[in-house]
C-alpha cells in the first residue's frame, strides 16, 4: 500500500526537468516532505505523479501502475493541490468544496452535503461557508483549497506548498491536521514545502531534490545534514534536534550561488 517511484523522467519544452528520479517510496499514514531549492523540480514531480505533466517511467500506487491510467482515473485515487490558488469564481466556500467532492465521488446528495460539512468543520471553515471565494484572504482561500482536496478522500494527496500563504497559527493547524488525517485515514500525503523546520517537525519521511535529481531520501534526521544543506541549498545552517521540542533548522549564511 505504498507509492513507489521506480523511474521518472520529465522534459518541458525539450529541457529535462526531472532526470532519473528513482528509488523513492512514500508510505500510507505518513507525511512525506518534498524539499529542495527553487527550480529543483518539486512542483513538476508532483504534477508528473498526478498526470498533469507528461513524463516517462513507472509509478506504482498499491502495486498498480499509474502511468497507464487516464487523468480521470488517476484523479479517483489521488489529488494534486496546485500552488496557485484558483481564479475568483462566483462560488461560495460550501459550493466550492461540494464541487470538489461531486466531481469525484458518486453518492447521495444528502451524504455529500454532510461530508462537506464535516470537512469544513475539521478545517475551522464552517463560519466561512457562505463567503464567496473572491472575498477570502489568501490564507482562507488556501484552507478552502485544502478542504477541496481532502473532501475527495484520495489515497494519495499531493500538496504543492500548501502553507505558503498561511499565518503561523494556520501553518501549524493545517500540518497538524494533515498529519492526523494521514494517520487516521491511512493515506499517503506528499507535501512540497520550503520551511525545513516545519518539514522536519511534521514529516516522517523526506525526499530532497537538486536540479531535477534525487539528492537524498530518508527520515528528516538522515536527510537534513550540514553537508547536504551546503551542497543542495548552498547555505550554512544551525540544525537542532532537541528531545522535548520540535527540530529547528536555522539558515545562517548563503555560501555561494545555487547556479540554477
Amino acid at each position: 500500500m505504498t507509492l513507489t517511484l521506480e523511474r521518472l523522467d520529465c522534459r518541458l519544452g525539450g529541457t529535462p526537468v526531472l532526470e532519473g528520479i528513482a528509488g523513492l517510496e512514500a508510505r500510507p499514514g505518513e507525511i512525506t516532505a518534498l524539499v529542495g531549492p527553487n527550480g529543483a523540480g518539486k512542483s513538476t514531480l508532483l504534477k508528473a505523479i498526478a498526470g498533469l505533466e507528461r513524463a516517462d517511467g513507472s509509478l506504482l500506487l498499491h502495486g498498480q501502475e499509474l502511468m497507464t491510467l487516464s487523468l480521470e482515473r488517476r484523479a479517483r485515487y489521488l489529488y494534486y493541490l496546485p500552488q496557485e490558488l484558483g481564479s475568483r469564481a462566483v462560488l461560495n466556500v460550501f459550493e466550492a468544496v461540494l464541487l470538489a467532492r461531486r466531481t469525484c465521488i458518486h453518492e447521495s446528495h444528502e451524504r455529500a452535503l454532510r461530508k462537506v460539512q464535516a470537512t469544513l468543520q475539521a478545517l475551522e471553515l464552517e463560519p466561512l461557508a457562505e463567503r464567496e471565494l473572491g472575498q477570502l484572504s489568501g490564507g482562507q482561500r488556501q484552507r478552502v483549497a485544502i478542504a477541496q482536496a481532502v473532501t475527495r478522500e484520495p489515497s494519495l494527496l499531493l500538496l504543492d506548498e500548501p502553507t505558503s500563504a498561511l499565518d503561523l497559527h494556520h501553518q501549524l493547524q493545517v500540518l497538524d491536521w494533515l498529519s492526523r488525517l494521514a494517520a487516521q485515514r491511512h493515506i499517503i500525503v506528499i507535501i512540497a514545502i520550503h520551511d525545513l523546520s516545519l518539514a522536519a517537525r511534521f514529516a516522517h519521511h523526506m525526499w530532497m531534490l537538486k536540479a531535477g535529481r534525487v539528492a537524498a531520501s530518508g527520515t528528516p534526521g538522515d536527510v537534513l545534514t550540514h553537508a547536504r544543506l551546503r551542497d543542495v541549498y548552498a547555505i550554512e545552517a544551525h540544525i537542532e534536534w532537541p528531545d522535548d521540542e520540535p527540530p529547528r533548522i536555522t539558515p545562517l549564511t548563503a555560501i555561494h550561488s545555487l547556479g540554477r
Partner: peptide, 20 residues
C-alpha cells in the same frame, strides 16, 4: 455541469479533478 463549474477554478484545478 459539475465539470464546467470546476473549470472556473482554473485549468490546473480542473485537471487535478480529473477533467480533460
Amino acid at each position: 455541469g459539475w465539470r464546467l463549474t470546476a473549470l472556473r477554478l482554473g485549468d490546473l484545478h480542473a485537471q487535478a479533478m480529473g477533467i480533460d
